[in-house]
Design a protein around this nucleic acid. Sequence first.
DNA 1: CAAGTATACCTAAGTTTATTAGGTATAAAA
DNA 2: TTTTATACCTAATAAACTTAGGTATACTTG
Lengths: 110, 110
Amino acid sequence: MVNKSLLKGTLSTLVLKQLADNGQMYGYEIIQKIKAATAHQLKVTEGALYPSLHKLEEQGLLTVERREVSGRTRKYYALSAKGKKASQEQQQQLQAFLNSVQTLLQPKTN
Amino acid sequence: MVNKSLLKGTLSTLVLKQLADNGQMYGYEIIQKIKAATAHQLKVTEGALYPSLHKLEEQGLLTVERREVSGRTRKYYALSAKGKKASQEQQQQLQAFLNSVQTLLQPKTN
DNA sequence: CAAGTATACCTAAGTTTATTAGGTATAAAA
DNA sequence: TTTTATACCTAATAAACTTAGGTATACTTG
C-alpha cells in the first residue's frame, strides 16, 4: 500500500546517466545495474524502461544496435551526440532538484 | 521546453514536512515557503497544491480550519495524529529515494 | 481613481509517466 | 521437465502533474 514510486520524471535521466557511464548497454542490463547500484532500493520495471528507451531513441538521444548473444537478441543502446548533451543537462537539473528537496527535508532547527 | 517538473510523487511529502515544521499553514503560504526555502528553484503551482491538500485532508492526514484574515479567507491546515506518523514515514522513504538517486548520479570513477 | 499586482481560494482538461498485467521466446538450472 | 533467468515487447489503467482558466479581496502605483 506504500511507496507508489517516487521515480516519476527521473527515470530517463537515470537511463541517460547509465549509458554515459557504461557506454553501450541493453535494456535488461540497465535494470540490473540500477538495482545492484542501489542495493535493491530502486527497481525499474520493464513496463517503465522499454517505453522510456523507445522515447529517448525517438528523440534522437540514443542509437541502437541489435545483437545476437548466446541465442538471444539484445538491443544495445548508446548515447548520440545529442544524447550526451541532454544527459549532462538533465543530470544538472536533477542534481539541483535533489538539492532543493534535500534542503526542504532538513530537520527543522527549533 | 525543459524541466517538466521532477516533482511528481514528492509534493505531498514536502507539504507534510512543511506542516510538521511550521504547525498551521494555509495553501498560499506553503507555496511561498517552498519557493523561498529553495531560492526559487522549486515552484509549486496552485493547480498541484490545492488538489494535493484536498487529498491529504480526505485521507485524514490533515485537519482544516477556515479563518478570515484582513478580508480574505484562509484555510489553515495542520497535521492530524495520523498525518504526523505519515509525515515521518514518507520523509524516511523520500530520503532513501534521494540517497539512491544521488548514488546513481555520482560521477563515475574510471 | 483606475489599473495592475499580490493575496487566496478553486477546478477541469490534457499530458506525462508510471504500474499492472499480460505476451513471446531462448537458455540455464533444479 | 519444470522452473528460473534472460530479453524483448505492449495495452489498459492510474496517479500526479501542467496549463489555463475562474472568483474575489486588498494593496500599490501612475
